[in-house]
Every structure is written in structure tokens, then in C-alpha cells.
Amino acid sequence: MKPIVWLASFPKCGNTWARLLLANLASEEPRGINTIGTGDGIASSRPRFDDTCLIASGLLTHEECDAMRPALYRHLAEGAGRRAAARESADDPLGVWQWIKTHDAWTCTTAGEPLMGGGAIAHAAVLIVRDPRDVVASLANHNGQTLEEAATMMADPDSAFAGRSDRQPLQLRQRLLGWSGYYRSWIEQDEVPVHVLRYEDLQAGAAGALGAVLAGLGISVDPARLERAALWSAFETVQAQEAESGFKEAPVKLGTGRFFRSGRSGGWREELSDALRATIERDHGEMMRRFGYLPEGRR
């Protein structure tokens, strides 16, 4: 048994940054954006489903596929999966768990099972959160949408990634439930302990913010090592790497455009119209207050 730590976030909330930080924390030399593992590292990886379940997930409806995913994650956690051991390294303080990225909201299958396999196989979830007013512009860039379209998606409880049915999407369908729905689903489930990591706190000091979350998970890491990982994962470094050689996990339609766009916090003050800002604050007020993006009591 090698329990899972879910790295859970709505898209464009800093999941890749967190993964890069963790990869650099586990490494003795700098790891670049194209060396932090392939799509296999994500819970919704189609190749891993097919390789492990020995059937073509593409022949299943989204719901039928979801019905098989809890057993897949149980199998991975039980350590029977080949890839479970791939991360092991004597000097890797993170190696006791499997760190798996996911953009799936916490949902249940049609049979009522938690999609992510439940509490028995997961040590914890690190829930990476970012101010939705900053997510809008990043998501619009990622999806090739207008800001308004991105805001609509973030407010849509039926929103999903890889959810089309006229083709086989690259990944398994991931229900997002909208930005608020996403975070509510994770913090309101009571199977897996959730540790919140705010994008803004990473920005204010990645080493400290990451160290605090890891401490919450029960491991202490040498502060110098945290500082080194933060330095190797700095936004400017990441952006330079993308400019130089591109990012293989970026959507192809972005072309040579920027996956790592601005990385700023508070950019919404210039990028959003007052009306759009008000829309987002209205759509997501409760969760924004929950994570400290709006003062308590403000309506």
C-alpha cells in the first residue's frame, strides 16, 4: 500500500507550479517544466486507465468510465501498479506517498462510490486555490476563450474538461462543477483530509507556504532544501523555459503561446472590467470569503 496524496485544483490555479516545486524538492538537480512527468501523473490519464484495466476507455460512456475509476485508484494505491514504484528514491522525502494531480471535483459514481476511491487509499489532499478573479484571465488564455466565456464556465455546475462525446478526448472526462462547486466538493467531503495551499501564499513565499503544507501532512523538510526548490521553480525561470522550448503539457492550440502567462496575483485589477469583477464576486462570493479573497461580511 502506497497511499495517494491528491494534488487537487480547478484548472489554472497553480497545480503545475506545485508539481514543479515537489519535483524540485525531491531532486538533487534542477528539474525543468518538461521533466516533471507526463500526463500519466494526472488522475484522468487515459493511457493509464487502458493499460491497467486492459480495456479501451474510449468504448465506455463518461459515466461508465467513472464507475471503474474508484477500483483503478484502489489498485494504484495498493502498489500493484508498476508506476507506483517508479518514484521511489532513497533521498526523496515525499516518496512515502504517490502524488497524483487531479482536476476532478470530488464526486460520486452512479453507484454512489467516491470517484477518487474514498478515504482508505488517500493520505490527504492538497487543495490548491487561487483567486477566481485571477483564474478568469488565465483560463480564458488556456481555453482560447473570452474573459466572459471563461467566467461563464467557472460559474457552470456542469462544467467539465475532456467532456466531449463526438470524439475521444485525450484524457478521461473531469467534472469541474464550476470554480465554487469544485472547491466546495473537496472541502465538504469527509473522507480525505484536505490541506489548503493558496496560490497567493506560494507567491508571497513558496518555500514557506509549501513547507507549512508539508508539515501539515506530517513531514518536515530541511528549509534550505525548500528554498532551493523554490528557486529552481521560480516563475521567471519557468517562463524562460517555456519561451526556450515550449511546455509539452500546454494545450496544443496555444501553439507557442504562453501556458505560464503572467503568474501574477491581483492582475484582475487591470484585466477585468468592473462588471465582470462584480459577476465573479457574486458567483463565487461564499467560497471567496472562505479562502480569504473577499472580506467577511461583504455582500
Partner: peptide
């Protein structure tokens, strides 16, 4: 040997697609 939805025993293999 076994997987999430399959088992192997000698020269027999069981494959299950639950509900289907």
C-alpha cells in the same frame, strides 16, 4: 495476478467491465 477489473489464474483470464 490481478488488476482493478481482471484476474489471471494459470491459463484462465477473467475480464470484467462492471455493469456491462
Amino acid at each position: 495476478a490481478s488488476g482493478p477489473n481482471w484476474q489471471m489464474a494459470d491459463d484462465r483470464f477473467l475480464l470484467r467491465i462492471p455493469g456491462i
